[in-house]
Design a binder for these strands. Structure first.
Lengths: 242, 242
DNA sequence: ATAATAGTGTCTTTCAGACATTATGAT
DNA sequence: ATCATAATGTCTGAAAGACACTATTAT
């Protein structure tokens, strides 16, 4: 079967693939790393948990990146969340509708800044701790694998970048920041060394020193200086396990 | 327009996108970093240089990765070249045939091991130094941008991984290896430190010590121990320029 | 005062990198 | 012998991390 493309060129149906963008939106809630999921209200995979992704609105978006940005805005209410492309996975078995392709993005957001969108189709939208994902029954499509790959990417990069900054609220202490690193890496981190290394990177600015009510000296609070690219530490923060 | 998918499900034409896989196959030839290009023999972009990519053969490949592997085998004759996914770029302006999507892979090969395929359509297939790309007239589609992004990825990762090993022949000296690093990074590298750091990584095995005819002590030759993942140096080899 | 956490100063260890020295080949 | 490059050994400086000590709050 040969047909005309949108612009009048010749093409075969086999030049085309089913395509979706699947954002893995991560945050930290009360000491848990969580991912934003929806419960599918339609076939295929009705009733199963899935990433809040889907088709892109080709007529209204000029390129992939802006499509992702607007999807993130729609889901989280955030204008400029940190996100990066993780991978594109494709195959015949991913989706019952046929050979399909999914491009996965990782977004890191501060939980407090998110306003979850009321879903127009009445789908349930929830933060799910990543440790619970296996237990919720199978996820739709290959989304569990896509989340796994994204978490691998995150853990890799947390070993030598400042990615966890994006989980933090506007102001935070080094103690809280270190907690985020430790949560993701699953390993403790020396207190003073961490402070020395992070502060020497010049990616934080001091804000206020506020009392948190605990019976101890209040910690300095910092704000993350927005940057274009993640900061890369000249040495690994923690040795990567091979 | 609503039509049936390959598996009989309902779908809209707008669920589909034009998709191609575009490998950026890199090697080093006589001190030049080169990329494998073809000259397009068909419209669109006839006569322009392009990446040796194209549509995937959906009926005959179960997933994206194996599609890439067979495409690399076909173009280079290599069974197990190193390759990794770089990014997926999509948009309305990339291809005159309409909204399309391209997934870019970076492959690193040793020039001597490659057997360039006779192209069935008689297209010219050549190694082109990356420094020449701008001068050859515009490349097809967005391929010049895709190559740029791939080179950025390569330069980034060469700063902290063993990727250049894949450019080397079966046996090589540390001098030759260091040359590859310096070529890609565009910066000199201290001789002894380089040796110390590479050898301490335990990713090389000694082979023979052969004379190269020069009037000096022959250098030890090494073979790269094949690994699943690139080795990550615990410290940056050269500070990344921001 | 005591408990708890923040922050600072000192010391040790490790390793990159500089430099000097020795080794091994060709001419 | 001389030259050229390989390999090894020694030294220095920088930074991570351990530890001790001081600072600041609530109770």
């Amino acid at each position: 079967m040969v047909f005309k493309t949108e612009t009048g060129h010749k093409a075969s149906q086999y030049d085309y693939v089913l395509f979706s963008v699947d954002p893995v939106i991560l945050t930290i809630i009360e000491g848990d790393l969580c991912v934003l999921l929806i419960k599918r209200s339609q076939e295929p995979c009705k009733g199963q948990w899935a990433l809040p992704g889907g088709r892109i609105d080709k007529p209204n978006c000029d390129d992939l990146k802006s499509a992702v940005r607007s999807k993130l805005k729609q889901k989280t209410g955030l204008d400029q969340p940190y996100f990066e492309q993780v991978l594109t996975e494709g195959g015949a078995q991913m989706d019952p509708r046929g050979w399909s392709l999914s491009t996965v993005y990782m977004a890191l957001v501060n939980h407090g800044a998110v306003v979850l969108a009321e879903n127009d189709t009445g789908e349930e939208v929830t933060w799910v701790p990543v440790t619970d994902i296996g237990r919720r029954g199978g996820m739709a499509f290959w989304h569990e694998m896509l989340i796994d790959k994204t978490l691998c990417r995150l853990r890799d990069k947390v070993g030598y970048t400042d990615l966890p900054m994006h989980f933090m609220p506007d102001q935070f202490t080094l103690h809280e920041l270190r907690g985020a690193y430790e949560l993701i890496m699953g390993a403790p981190f020396p207190r003073q060394s961490f402070a020395k290394r992070v502060l020497s990177a010049c990616i934080l600015e001091e804000t206020s020193r506020e009392n948190d009510g605990g019976g101890h000296r209040p910690a300095m609070r910092y704000r993350y200086k927005q940057r274009n690219k993640p900061f890369v530490f000249p040495r690994l923060l923690i040795a990567q396990q091979d």
